[in-house]
């Protein structure tokens, strides 16, 4: 009899403690800033893609989750500065283990990770994210490729003047967080 009361004591006591229940999905938890969430393919400030289709991310991937095929930029259809762009880009989130080696491998800092963690679905096909799903959204001042290079004459300008461009864009609303901001803040 005394034991039963003791049990209720725990129940009542809990009522005065801090609630540990997550109100997910009504209230979404903001993960840590460096959380390894869904990937994002970033853009240069004029909207051209940073991805050059080099496949180094696919090479680095220990889970073989990434598939890339390069393409040839032409004068008529330019997707990135320079000769080459990523024509096909797929990440299979059934395979991805979120290790981030792909991000380290990326030579142009095209591939980064967002903090978006809602990567569940009820079928396999939809978990293979394509380039359209992974591309960073167009911020103000950006233009949907294909279009000519706006920030220089060749790809060197984009990389050599990269820091400068970033500084000059400092005042722009997107400049601080083009590569790392959670999608919500980028206007998704």
């Amino acid at each position: 009899m005394f034991d039963a009361l003791k049990g209720f004591g725990v129940t009542f006591g809990t009522m005065f403690k801090k609630v540990v229940t997550e109100e997910y999905p009504e209230v979404k938890k903001i993960p840590a800033e460096r959380y390894h969430g869904r990937h994002q393919l970033n853009r240069h400030p004029d909207g051209l893609e940073k991805c050059v289709g080099c496949e180094l991310c696919a090479w680095a991937c220990p889970a073989d989750a990434i598939y890339v095929e390069g393409g040839d930029n032409t004068e008529k259809a330019r997707f990135s500065p320079g000769e080459r762009y990523g024509a096909i880009y797929q990440i299979n989130y059934l395979r991805c283990i979120g290790c981030g080696l792909c991000v380290e491998a990326c030579p142009t800092r095209s591939l980064t990770m967002t903090t978006e963690y809602e990567l569940a679905d009820d079928n396999r096909q939809d978990l293979i994210y394509t380039k359209e799903q992974l591309m960073a959204p167009l911020l103000s001042g950006m233009e949907q490729p294909p279009h000519p290079m706006r920030l220089g004459d060749n790809e060197q300008d984009y990389y050599v003047k990269g820091p400068e461009l970033a500084v000059s864009m400092e005042s722009a609303p997107f400049a601080d967080s083009m590569e790392t901001a959670p999608l919500k803040e980028q206007g998704k």
């Binding site: 289709g53 080099c54 496949e55 696919a58 090479w59 095929e69 390069g70 393409g71 040839d72 000769e83 080459r84 024509a87």
Partner: peptide, 9 residues
């Protein structure tokens, strides 16, 4: 073969 693939793949 321009930009078609990488040898590891």
């Amino acid at each position: 073969y321009r930009f078609r693939s990488r040898p590891f793949d």
